[in-house]
Design a protein around this nucleic acid. Structure first.
Lengths: 346, 346
DNA sequence: CTGAAAGCGCTTACAG
DNA sequence: CTGAAAGCGCTTACAG
């Protein structure tokens, strides 16, 4: 697969073998007119034989495209690790990217300051053609930097303040309503929400959605606790809620890890699930299906979310703009962790 | 930060502003002799002012280095997601890589055939200077391809058959012994092992280590079950082991997710943890510290493992070879899931 | 101490 | 239908 001298083949090696100019090789390989079909076929055969692929560096220079996009995750590694979301999202991104021969550059950093520095560097070095932005904050300092640099980007999640950044977002309103409506139909009146990081925009959007969904049923939405998505804070939030004088009969969590933690806490506190406490998980991963009892969860296609985000970003890079898309709403998958409350609250 | 025409600055823009040749700019910026110190400073100031960074594509062309390394994860996305290992490992890799301004290209694929195709493509396109190879199989078809291509690589984990691929590996022998010795000291005689994927080399190495550790104490190692690391198979394996006529009083798991699943299964089957069943988890993530009861686990520094792997790979790329390294052995962190068996077995 | 030039591997007008 | 040449943004011998 390598040329005799041990180096990777170039169009020059192909041209030499075929006895034509390098220009002819390029035309032949790129399907452009200007070479006879026999010559073209001969060149293609030689290229395949040599295992030749165009050097990205050379293509980048001439086309001023990096043929790569970047993703920077700005959360502590320990938190990312246990969150099944990201791997599935990344798998979805790549399904779309690798089909188009675009590489994904991944960086994991501690905070937004580091993320901004990394973005600036990647852009200045022409490493990426665009960025996927996740975990948008209510006030997100990355946004003005993207604008300043003119760095094409797409947000995975709604953009605060409706900036000019196109986004692919989830229908949180519908998802949260589905969970609340179902619990209310079961007879629950006192429903709590264990939300994610308060600085995140989607945390606030979902809290708002929760409030509205409760209001539709004439119910107050007092029991809202924010967390950092970890098992620890999920457990703590559950403990807090279950220690209140009138405790909730149902809790809706913003991810699945915390919901599993809640099952453990309930058991530890002698609260039966689902008889005395119904639990709804926010994402439907392995954990939910196999916990004990299995968890009712909001299920949505995270890989598709990733794929759509990638597609939107590529469109943005190619056309200069992209429409903001809305993903299909999550659906409620009912399992063993939800039931009618044993003693109807109030 | 951009030049007046809106495009990213190049050394030509800097040269124009400074009134010198582009060669002088390059010398000044690379700290090479050939420019007066005043000129050098003026050039550096302009470069900083412009936010200039050398284009990787251009540097790649001249230096024939991609300034990137690749990581291809060949597991189903759903399995990867719940496995805290990978994010921590990647975070460790990047700690080392980004300090050296090397980018990490990540790809997630379904199987080794796809991984091989992706590796070939990356190498042919000159996208990467080297690869990190994880999850080595007992018979791993990626290895001959790396050799054929002459693609510098480093294995995270021991290499089957002691091929010429350098590796950074863990001391599985010591880790497994630590767990077995501790359980035996507590009075356990019947100890089971729930291992990972049987095709993986380290699964077999750890099983061997388990057998040897048991033999040291004159104990048989009959109860060994392999799994795919998922919650589901962890639960199933636990159920199988606990259904045997003489059931084990302790189980050592190959990751933490399965250990948490085992706690649930034990509860479901009315087996008290740790009184009737001691549980040791294979990796020490959040899940272990906060499960109920908290899990005794083999703790090791996965981020350091990633960092060392990256460093070894960079050395391999630079020097053409790298020594195989051995990580510090995992240590046993004792928590609430292990205790002396209530009724001493046998 | 500084400038002009070649070259890395491609693509793409531009001549023949 | 084909070849010779310029250019992408750098680095690095090589002259002055």
């Amino acid at each position: 697969m390598t040329t005799p001298d041990g180096r990777r083949p170039t169009i020059a090696s192909i041209a030499a073998r075929a006895g034509v100019s390098i220009g002819a090789v390029s035309y032949a390989l790129n399907g452009r007119p200007g070479v006879s079909s026999e010559t073209r076929q001969r060149i293609i055969d030689i290229a395949n034989d040599l295992g030749w692929r165009p050097s990205v560096a050379a293509r980048s220079m001439v086309g001023s495209r990096a043929h790569s996009v970047g993703l920077i995750l700005a959360r502590p590694a320990d938190t990312l690790g246990v969150e099944p979301f990201f791997m599935r999202f990344i798998a979805g991104l790549e399904r779309e990217l690798s089909a188009r021969r675009i590489a994904l550059l991944l960086q994991i950093v501690e905070d937004h300051a580091a993320a901004i520095e990394a973005m600036r560097l990647w852009w200045a070095e022409r490493r990426v053609d665009g960025m996927v932005i996740t975990d948008l904050w209510v006030k997100d300092e990355r946004l003005p930097v993207l604008a300043e640099l003119g760095l094409p980007a797409i947000a995975a999640g709604r953009v605060p303040g409706g900036g000019d950044l196109p986004s692919v977002s989830t229908d949180d309103e519908a998802a949260v309503s589905a969970a609340v409506d179902y619990l209310v139909a079961l007879g629950h009146r006192r429903i709590a929400r264990v939300a994610g990081l308060p600085v995140l925009n989607h945390t606030q959007l979902r809290i708002d959605a929760f409030r509205r969904a409760m209001r539709v049923h004439g119910l107050p939405a007092r029991d809202i606790v924010t967390t950092d998505y970890t098992w620890g804070e999920g457990a703590r939030a559950t403990r807090t809620l279950l220690s209140r004088r009138t405790r909730p009969t149902a809790i809706i969590f913003d991810n699945d890890l915390m919901a599993v933690a809640a099952v453990n806490v309930a058991q530890e506190m002698g609260v039966a699930v689902p008889a005395e406490l119904s639990i709804v998980a926010g994402d439907d991963s392995q954990l939910c299906a196999l916990a004990h009892p299995a968890l009712t969860a909001l299920a949505w296609d995270i890989q598709a979310y990733g794929a759509h985000t990638a597609r939107a970003l590529l469109q943005r890079i190619d056309d200069g703009h992209a429409p903001s898309l809305r993903e299909q709403a999550a659906t409620l998958v009912v399992r063993g962790s939800t039931a009618a409350p044993v003693k109807a609250a109030r």
